[in-house]
Design a protein around this nucleic acid. Structure first.
Lengths: 139, 139
DNA sequence: CTCAATAGTTGATGATGTCAACTATTGATT
DNA sequence: AATCAATAGTTGACATCATCAACTATTGAG
């Protein structure tokens, strides 16, 4: 018994293709801000004013906790994030953006969300449809 | 003169979000096949029966040529790809999949293109629309 | 109070990625 | 034909990414 029809497979295949295409762009974009792709991902996940425990970060990144330690070490040494011991549980350390980190994050999101020219080939109606569909995909 | 309207920006933002969500899945999926994310990308780019020069690979991956050397060294030592000197230009080496490599690649694509459950939430009509839109985005 | 479980760090190791320097080959200019 | 800059790929040095195992500190259940 098949869960997804041929159209779902086609769509997914295209999304995977899109994913690999983007994967190649990220290092260049990151380098311009003197970040690595992994650091971009971390910065992307720490929302301003919403500190996040390191453990949750490891979970979202699907990587080992010790990897997060190193990643954060480097970001912290550049003054982009800071570790704050949690009041509720003294084992956990919450990561917060410094003002400098928040500015860099904003710049990063800004650069990343400049749509490529190909998006301009779609009509406004198609763009809206795409938004609707993707929103349901990600919810 | 405006290049992209607000809808294009929204759409792109969602695609970026999708990208980061997928990025976290890849290492797990790759590990099941005893591959790294980078190796998945390489394998994805070498189509069976269509050898590709190492330089082109570096270009597509947007990374240094020396990086490709190491990447290919490891894949070759596992018998997944082989370097073939080009007849036309003895400087270039074309990468081809071995039968074993082709099988692993097929397995990889198979696993990657299993649509996530969220795609099933879309109607078939929406799926078709998504396919149409993405196809134009990637062409 | 004890003790297993959890959050994070450390150290060892391998993979990824860059850069600079190198070899071999190519192709254009003289 | 001889030269020489440009190109394809490799090598070595080095930083980063990522895993694992072992460790410390803290928590929470019994």
């Amino acid at each position: 018994m098949k869960h997804s029809g041929p159209d779902a497979c086609d769509a997914w295949q295209l999304l995977v293709q899109f994913f690999f295409a983007q994967r190649a762009h990220l290092p260049l974009l990151a380098a311009e801000l003197e970040l690595s792709p992994a650091q971009c991902h971390v910065l992307h996940l720490i929302e301003p004013g919403r500190p996040i425990p390191m453990g949750r970060l490891a979970e979202t990144l699907a990587c080992d906790a010790s990897n997060v330690t190193g990643l954060v070490d480097r970001l912290e040494s550049r003054g982009l994030v800071c570790r704050r011991p949690s009041a509720a549980d003294r084992r956990v350390k919450a990561l917060a953006l410094t003002p400098k980190g928040a500015r860099l994050r904003a710049l990063l999101l800004d650069r990343m969300t400049v749509p490529p020219v190909t998006l301009g080939r779609l009509s406004v109606q198609e763009q809206r449809r795409l938004v609707q569909i993707l929103a349901r995909l990600l919810e």
